[in-house]
Design a protein around this nucleic acid. Structure first.
Ligand SMILES: [Mn+2]
Ligand SMILES: [Mn+2]
Ligand SMILES: [Zn+2]
Ligand SMILES: [Zn+2]
Lengths: 156, 156
DNA sequence: ACAACTATTTAGATCATATCTAATCTGAAA
DNA sequence: TTTCAGATTAGATATGATCTAAATAGTTGT
């Protein structure tokens, strides 16, 4: 996306276009990974060191509120973010914890009986297993169960 | 589930059955919500105050490694847990943040092309919208967009 | 171009959650 | 009953996120 389009989308959400805020948005948009606030802080300041830690957090909060960025649902401690460009699902690797985008496809909605009086807005998918890299590094053996997988991952 | 069954499932995972560990497991199994470590600490010690904070965390770690408990994938800061009894999906309320269980149903797996060389183990669903309580408290208006919903929720 | 107004940025303090340490205790096997 | 690896503990420490209040800078109107 070009600079002006980003600036317009900020303005369209009632957010001023500051160099710091622009940098966070632009970085997330060209990212295919799902960086933490700390990673965004580093990357953004490596290019142009004008953002404080608080500003990164402030801007992530504002961009999420504006719907331009989302926090990814997963079980780690540090929040991870992606720009809400195109709709997609996620794949989380059991072994290395990496979060990858998966092509979006409509998922059958829960049965009305199961839904009850809840109002459904969307269904997102979290696929789990081994990422390409981890799958090739060692084929999962029969006794390599959840325990082993979580162990490996937690040990970083 | 009866006490002996819990003890057997702990032993079956190579975990000693201690009063503290048993209490965490038993509490999670009778829970329909998705408590944080702090909530488990409080609840367990209200009944029988023998567990330290570190022990709650230690046991949650051990039970997750054993596959008897899982940490729920969601975007909050404090980890939330449930016993992995019956397979199910989750519904997260946009307004109050509550996580509810949804009946399990098989989800169509991603297309082979999209999956690539990844090894798929499972697909879990995160449904979003308004829980029964929030849906009835105020019907969503047309201009009540993501921004408003997140705002309301973040304000606790 | 300039002033005025308010959103934004900032360093550092503080909070919330999770993990580590190393001393002590205990479940369960023999 | 003895034994000892596994489990518990209080408190210290680490990590990630938010708050504070003073300084700065986009944007709008002139
Ligand atoms: Mn993504
Ligand atoms: Mn659940
Ligand atoms: Zn991997
Ligand atoms: Zn709700």
């Amino acid at each position: 996306m070009n600079p002006d389009a980003i600036k317009r989308s900020l303005a369209g959400s009632g957010l001023r276009s500051t160099p710091q805020r622009y940098a966070v948005m632009a970085f997330l948009m060209k990212q295919t990974s799902h960086p933490t606030a700390a990673e965004i802080f580093e990357a953004v300041n490596r290019v142009d060191p004008r953002s404080s830690r608080a500003t990164i957090y402030n801007n992530l909060r504002d961009l999420v509120q504006a719907g331009l960025v989302r926090e990814v649902a997963m079980e780690g401690r540090a929040a991870r973010f992606d720009a809400t460009g195109t709709r997609h699902h996620h794949f989380i690797c059991d072994r290395c914890g990496k979060i990858e985008d998966m092509d979006w496809y409509a998922v059958p909605r829960p049965a009305a009986a199961s839904l009850g009086k809840r109002v459904l807005r969307e269904c997102e998918l979290i696929c789990r297993g081994l990422c390409t890299q981890c799958a090739s590094r060692r084929a999962p053996t029969q006794d390599s169960g959840l325990k082993e997988r979580i162990n490996t991952w937690k040990k970083k």
